[in-house]
């Protein structure tokens, strides 16, 4: 781009094209939805099956989550290294998921006091906020709808037994993380 005298139309066209270029720079966030989606989905189903088989300490399957945290962290750090531009959206996403991660840990911490049953309903609300807000920011309807389904399932979860709650978690994750995650990936490809 060389220096030259500009007219008004050229000015407008530069502003327009540069803002469009910057907006098209949205990075593909689908990895987190797909990775966490499949991880939580399988853990909930495995937990459910182990409960049916009356295996002791079936909840130990959730120990996979910290492992998932490490994988996510490494992926995020590598991605950040390659990034040449920091977007407002990326920063908002970090704060959103950071606060949800902290809420999740706090709810799990409270489990001892408040019992297991309400915890899974709260988890569904937390999952729902994540996809609903992300969907709004990315203007991606499947995530918004997935979030709404999570909210609905959180209400249902109050009325069912714990093992059925696990199936609700799996269903919620399928419609709010796995399916929208794969759709988001397809959109970027």
């Amino acid at each position: 781009m060389e220096e030259k005298e500009l007219n008004i139309n050229e000015s407008l066209s530069i502003i327009n094209s540069m803002i469009n270029r910057a907006q098209n720079n949205l990075s593909d966030n689908s990895f987190y939805f797909i990775f966490w989606g499949w991880l939580v989905f399988s853990s909930a189903l495995i937990h459910y099956c182990l409960l049916q088989l009356e295996v002791e300490k079936a909840y130990c399957v959730w120990l996979l989550m910290p492992l998932g945290g490490i994988v996510s962290f490494i992926y995020g750090a590598r991605k950040k290294k390659k990034e040449k531009v920091k977007t407002y959206l990326g920063t908002y996403m970090t704060y959103l998921w950071g606060s949800l991660g902290i809420s999740l840990l706090l709810v799990l911490f409270m489990m001892e006091k408040i019992g297991v049953t309400p915890v899974y309903s709260f988890l569904l609300i937390i999952y729902g906020i994540g996809t609903f807000v992300s969907g709004g920011m990315l203007r991606f309807k499947p995530l918004i709808n997935g979030g709404l389904i999570c909210f609905l399932l959180s209400v249902v979860s109050v009325f069912v037994d714990f093992d059925i709650q696990l199936l609700l978690i799996a269903a919620a994750i399928l419609v709010s993380y796995i399916i929208p995650g794969h759709l988001l990936k397809a959109k970027f490809n």
Binding site: I14, I15, M18, I19, R21, A22, Q23, N25, V85, K86, T87, Y88, G90, T91
Partner: peptide
């Protein structure tokens, strides 16, 4: 124009 659209 690019910098108004991104953080940095």
């Amino acid at each position: 124009s690019l910098l108004v659209s991104v953080e940095e």
